[in-house]
Design a protein around this nucleic acid. Structure first.
Length: 198
DNA sequence: CCTGCGATTTGCT
DNA sequence: GCAAATCGCAGGC
């Protein structure tokens, strides 16, 4: 499958968050199929870039699309976003869960003592641990180099996608900006009847 | 300079 | 279900 290029990410953050479901994220050949994403932008009180508040940490979000916004939180976890929309529009997609596919044993080593397939990459912090992503990857493009995202394969041409409120935030919870592969068993949280309507 | 807390994960109750 | 772990960031003084 072709590698997603910069124009893919130069679109609405919601479109990108939706269209990334089913694509394959690899860091140096290790990773899997994206099954859960969330959208964040400058008009969103839950976002680091709310009101276009620019800081040293979130600076890459104001730059060109297709770059990695990695940040450190809770004193121990890294989270990976992909910058979207045209330069100057602060928006990004948080990658929340993968279906493990490539380099599974390497991911198991990094996630030890966890070894269950379903627990390797079913959370944004777990993805970064399994794929060895931290601030060294801050700002790097995801369309060339060590970090790449591949277009949907044959099995993922028309994934069933549902939207729900986002997870782990205290404001902006009315927005249904979380995108999930409806049939995946690798989501960070199971879908509920309440939040799963599309 | 100081303080509160977070786009989480884990393990214990 | 709930709290601990653990620390840099952002906002206030």
């Amino acid at each position: 499958m072709p590698i997603l290029t910069k124009p893919f990410f130069a679109r609405s953050v919601h479109t990108v968050a939706h269209d990334l479901i089913g694509c394959r994220l690899l860091h140096e050949g290790v990773g899997g199929i994206i099954v859960e994403t969330e959208a964040y932008n400058h008009e969103d009180p839950a976002a680091h870039v709310y009101l276009n508040r620019r800081t040293e940490r979130n600076a890459v979000m104001f730059g060109p699309p297709g770059r990695a916004y990695v940040y450190f939180t809770y004193g121990m976890h890294y989270l990976l976003n992909i910058v979207c929309e045209e330069e100057g529009h602060a928006a990004g997609v948080l990658l929340r869960a993968l279906e493990p596919a490539d380099g599974i044993e390497e991911m198991r080593r990094r996630r030890a003592p966890v070894h269950e397939l379903g627990q390797l990459t079913n959370g944004p912090g777990k993805i970064c641990q399994a794929l060895d992503i931290d601030l060294k990857q801050y700002g790097i493009p995801v369309y060339r180099g060590e970090l790449k995202i591949y277009a949907r394969g044959a099995d993922w041409q028309k994934p069933s996608i549902v939207t729900t409120p986002r997870i782990g935030i205290r404001v902006g919870t009315k927005r249904k900006w979380r995108y999930c592969a409806a049939d995946s068993r690798f989501l960070s949280r199971k879908l509920t009847a309440k939040g799963a309507e599309q």
